[in-house]
């Protein structure tokens, strides 16, 4: 057997039999047939007509797909719906809106002026809308 024509770089745990087998394989390694003369040109021509597959830029797509205005409108709708659902589910009360002092007084006066239309039984008990409270 001929001397191996390569410089071995073996792991420490490789035993002598493996070393001999590797040497034999290296010496008698099957040699690939030469490439056809125009192979490189063929590969390069193929590449020229093939684009590199670029991975999708998800961040940029998200910004493009959802403009800011639509995003904020959507967020407002979602918030409103969430509030309504929360109220319906847990409080069972209609949504209260803020009323300023002037409106409160106006409302009370209107109630007083129409008091005669209300039920007797209801007015017998204390009410913030009772006449006595405003005399």
């Amino acid at each position: 057997m001929n001397k191996p024509n390569f410089e071995p770089n073996f792991d420490n745990d490789r035993d002598f039999d493996d070393l001999k087998l590797m040497t034999f394989l290296k010496q008698n390694q099957p040699i690939s047939p030469p490439a056809s003369t125009n192979l490189q040109a063929k590969v390069m021509a193929e590449l020229a007509s093939t684009a590199i597959a670029r991975p999708l830029n998800i961040k940029r797509l998200e910004v493009k797909k959802i403009p800011k205005k639509i995003g904020s409108i959507g967020a407002a709708i979602v918030t409103t719906l969430s509030l309504l659902t929360f109220n319906q589910l847990f409080n069972h009360r209609p949504i209260q809106t803020a009323v300023n002092d002037a409106e409160t007084i106006k409302l009370e006066k209107s109630l007083i002026s129409n008091w005669h239309l209300s039920d007797e039984e209801f007015t017998s008990s204390y009410s913030v809308f009772s006449n006595s409270n405003y005399e």
Binding site: P30, S32, P33, V43, E46, L47, T50, I52, A53, P55
Partner: peptide
């Protein structure tokens, strides 16, 4: 050594085309 000599040029070409496409 893995596949033998039949169609070797095509296989080599396939490797480099795949490499090119997936370069990114």
């Amino acid at each position: 050594q893995l596949c033998g000599g039949d169609g070797l040029d095509d296989l080599v070409q396939d490797v480099f085309i795949r490499a090119w496409k997936g370069l990114a």
